[in-house]
Amino acid sequence: MLIGTNITDWSAVEGTYYAGVGSEGIWLAISIVLCIGALVLGARHEKAAYRKVK
């Protein structure tokens, strides 16, 4: 038996059996924003660190 359902076999599944269907684009956008934010903050930190050394 699958967790949280009364389905006992995958052949009984009709249609989509994925709770996050349709929201992949939102999570992709959030991931992209977080990665770009990390790159920007890291570059600013490195630039400040190099200024302190000089």
Rank of each mutant, 00 (worst) to 15 (best):
E46F: 11
V33A: 14
M1Q: 08
G4F: 04
G15V: 07
I7Q: 04
C35F: 04
I26V: 15
L28I: 15
I26S: 05
T5Q: 02
V33C: 07
L2I: 02
R51A: 07
G25N: 04
C35E: 04
L39W: 09
A48W: 06
V21N: 05
S11Q: 03
S23T: 15
Y18A: 15
I32A: 14
N6P: 04
G42Q: 02
E24T: 08
I3R: 09
S31C: 13
S11E: 07
A48M: 07
K47M: 05
M1F: 01
G42V: 03
C35Q: 06
I30M: 06
W10C: 15
G22D: 09
L41N: 12
K54V: 12
M1P: 02
G22P: 02
G15L: 07
T8Y: 03
V13K: 06
C35M: 11
A38P: 01
S23L: 15
L2K: 05
V13Q: 08
N6M: 07
Y18P: 00
V21I: 08
K47P: 05
C35P: 02
A43E: 02
K47F: 05
A38L: 07
V33F: 02
I30R: 00
V40R: 01
V33K: 02
I30W: 04
V21R: 09
A38K: 04
I3D: 09
G22V: 07
S23W: 10
C35D: 02
R44F: 14
G20M: 14
E14P: 00
G15H: 06
V40H: 05
A48R: 09
K54E: 10
V21S: 13
R44A: 15
L41S: 14
K52E: 11
Y18H: 13
G37D: 07
S11M: 08
W10D: 09
E24V: 10
V53H: 04
I26E: 06
A19N: 03
L41Q: 15
I32E: 07
G20E: 12
T16F: 07
A12P: 01
A29V: 09
Y17E: 11
E24I: 10
S31N: 12
V53C: 00
G4T: 01
A48C: 01
G4Q: 09
S31T: 14
A49V: 05
A43T: 10
V21D: 12
L41T: 14
V40E: 00
T16R: 08
S31I: 11
I7E: 05
Y50T: 08
R44P: 01
A12H: 07
I7K: 06
G20I: 01
E46L: 13
T5Y: 03
L34H: 12
I26M: 12
L28A: 13
V40T: 05
